[in-house]
Design a protein around this nucleic acid. Structure first.
Lengths: 197, 197, 197, 197
DNA sequence: AATGAATGAGTCTTCATTCAT
DNA sequence: GATGAATGAAGACTCATTCAT
C-alpha cells in the first residue's frame, strides 16, 4: 500500500484520494482531517486485535491455551490488516494527544490481557515462576509485533507457520522444565530436510 | 529528545538548530540536507551495534556464548544511544534509496550474525534443530528491538536485568530439553519473593 | 444575525441553509449563486429606502419638510432591515460589476434626492446658500448612514429619538441664522435634568 | 490600492506579496498570519488618529477649538492613510477577538475624546445643552468617518475644504444661537458663483 | 565559517457549486 | 422540487534550502 512505501507523512491527501478514486471534497466529507484518517487506521487495527484477544481470553480456561489462542489470532492480523500495519506501528507518534489517548487505552488493554495470562499461569503452576511478568510479556509482544517489519504475505513462510514457531518458542521459554516433554500440540515445521528426533 | 516526542518529520530544521545552539547556516555547513542528518543518525546507531556484534562474534567460540554476548551488548545500546533510537526504528522509511541501501546493508549484516550463530548452534548440537533459523532469528530480533518502545532508563528494571531475562527466555526456547538443566549461567531476577528451584 | 457577527464572507452556504432550515439544493433553487443572495440583500434594502424617499419627495412641498421626512423615514430603516444592514454597508465591495452597477444606480438616486432637496432649499432661501451642496449632502448621509455601526435596537435611545436629534442638528446647521428661532417642530430630548432656555 | 478594489478578503497572500515585491516566505517572516496584517493595518491607522487627537486635546483650551482641531486633524488622515482606510472601516469584523479587543480600545478612546469635548463645551456654556452628548458625538463621528466612502484625493474638493465645511456644519449645529454670528473663523468655500449675503 | 532573512514549491484544508437520486 | 454527497479550484500557510553579508 501507499503508506507502507512512503509513510503516512510521505503520502499527500491528493495521492490518497487518487488511489481511493474519490476527491478531496469526498475525503473531507468523511474525515475532518488527514489526522483523523490516521486515527481511524489505528483504531480499526487495535480494536480488531483487542476484540480477538478478549474473545480468546473468555473462551479458554488454561493460561497456556489462552496464550496460544491470543498469539495465534494476533499474528493472523498481519495478513488481514496489511495496509494498516505500518501506519499503526510507525506513526502513532503523530497522533494528537486526544486520539493518542484513546489508542493507548486499547493498546494497554491488549497488553494487560497478556500480562494477566502470564500471571495466571504462574499462579496455577503452568508457567515458570522465576520470570518477571512485565519483561516476559514485553518480550512476547516484541517478538510478535516485530513481525510487521519482515513478514511478506508471499514469502517463504505462511503466517500460520510463523505463529506456530512463535508459540513453540514462547511456551518452551516459559513452561517449567518438567512440563516441556508434553507441552506442545503444534506440529513444528522445518525449513530444511534434516530430520529431528 | 526532540525527535522522540515529535518524530523526525515533526521537528523542523529551525527547531534543530535552536536546540543545538547553532544556525541554519551552521547546520547546512555540516549536512547537505535534513535527510543527511537522518542518515547520520541511522548510521551512527547501526554502525555501533554492528561493531559490537562483530566483536562478540570473534571473541566467543560456542554459539551459546556468542548469542548471549551479542544480545547483552545490543540491549545495552538502548541506554547509550537513546536519542538515536526512535529515529532509527521509526523513520527509516523516509530515507532516500541511496542512504537506505547503505543502512539496510549494515542491518542485514547484523541480522546475519544472529542467523549464523543459530545455524552454528544447530550444527554443533547446542541448539534445537527443529526450529527454522530465519523465524527464530527474527523472533529474537523482534523481542530485543521492541525494547525501544517500552524501555525507560529510569524505570523499574535496569537494562542489565532486562537483557538477562531476554537471554534466559531465548536460551530456554532454543536449547534442547536435556540441556536445560544446566543451561543458564545468568542469575535470574525475580519480582516476587517466591523461591524457585 | 449570522452575517452581522461573521460577515457575509465568513458565513458559508452550509451555515446559511442550516439557519434557514433548507438544503443546499433548496438554496440553489432560489439563487443562482451566493453572490446573488448578496445582491438580493442589497437590493431589498436600497429599494425600500429609495421608495420611502421618493414618496417623501412627492408628498412634501417645502425642502425643509422634505429633508425631515426623508431622514425620518431613512433612520427608521435601521429597525426594520436590521439583518440587511451590515451586509449592505460592509460588503458592497464584493458584488460583481453587473450587480454593483444596479445597486449603485439606486444608491445614487437616493443621494440625488437629498442633494436636490438641499439645492431647492438654497434656491428658495430656506437653507443657507454658503454651503456646497455635495459636501453638505455627504455630511448628512454620513451622519445618518453611520448609525448602522452603533445603533442598538435595545439601547438607551429609540430610533425615533435618534432621528429627531439628527434632524435638529442638520437643520440647525443648514438653516440660515435668522430662521433658527422658529426652525424646529421637534421636541428635543435631553439626557440630563438641566433646563436650557 | 489592492484592498480598496477587492477588499481584504478578496486579495490573496500571493497578490499581496507580488505587489509588495516580496515572497510568501518573506511575508510570513514578518507576519504570523494574514490576519496579523489586518491587525497591523488597523492599528497603524487608529494609533495615528488617536495620537493626533490626544495632542489636540492637550493643546487646546476651549472645547470649540479642541473640537475644531480634532476634526481638522482627523479628516486629514484620509489623505495620509489612504491604503489603510477601506480596510479599517470595512473589515474590522474579520479580526479575531484578541486583536479586535485592542483596536476597539483605541477606537473607544478616540470616541471618548470627542464626547468629553462636547461635555466640556456644554458645561462651560460654549455648546448648546439640549443635545444628548452620545448621539451628537456619534453624529459628528459618522459625518466625518463616512468621508472614506466618497472622498477622492483628486476630486473636486480638497480635504482641507471638506474639513472646513464639516467644522462649519458641526459648530453651527451645536453652538447656541446667540453665539452663531461670531462663531466661525473659517472661510467657507462655495461651489458656485452665487454670492450670498 | 557563520548568520538568518528571504525563497517558493508543496501541503492541508475550505467551500461554492453540481447532480444523481 | 428537494436533497446532500461529491467535486476540485483556490486559498493560507509551512519549511527545507539558499545566499548575500
Amino acid at each position: 500500500m501507499l503508506f507502507e512505501k512512503k509513510g503516512f507523512h510521505g503520502v499527500t491527501v491528493n495521492e490518497i484520494v487518487q488511489k481511493a478514486e474519490t476527491s478531496k471534497g469526498g475525503f473531507y466529507h468523511h474525515f475532518t482531517s488527514k489526522e483523523e484518517l490516521l486515527y481511524v487506521i489505528h483504531d480499526a487495527f487495535i480494536s480488531y486485535v483487542l476484540e480477538k484477544a478478549a474473545y480468546a481470553n473468555n473462551s479458554c480456561i488454561s493460561p497456556t491455551d489462552k496464550l496460544k489462542a491470543i498469539i495465534k489470532d494476533f499474528v493472523k492480523v498481519f495478513d488481514i490488516y496489511k495496509p494498516h500495519i505500518s501506519v499503526f506501528y510507525q506513526e502513532s507518534i503523530y497522533l494528537n494527544p486526544e486520539y493518542e489517548q484513546q489508542i493507548k487505552q486499547k493498546r494497554d488493554q491488549f497488553k494487560q490481557l497478556i500480562l494477566q495470562t502470564i500471571t495466571e499461569g504462574q499462579a496455577n503452576g503452568e508457567f515458570r515462576r522465576d520470570l518477571p511478568v512485565e519483561i516476559t510479556g514485553m518480550a512476547i509482544l516484541g517478538m510478535v509485533n516485530w513481525t510487521y517489519k519482515w513478514y511478506q504475505p508471499k514469502g517463504k513462510n505462511t503466517i500460520d507457520e510463523i505463529s506456530d514457531i512463535f508459540i513453540e518458542l514462547i511456551l518452551q521459554a516459559i513452561l517449567p522444565n518438567e512440563a516441556i516433554s508434553f507441552k506442545s500440540h503444534n506440529r513444528v515445521i522445518r525449513d530444511d530436510t534434516d530430520v529431528w528426533e
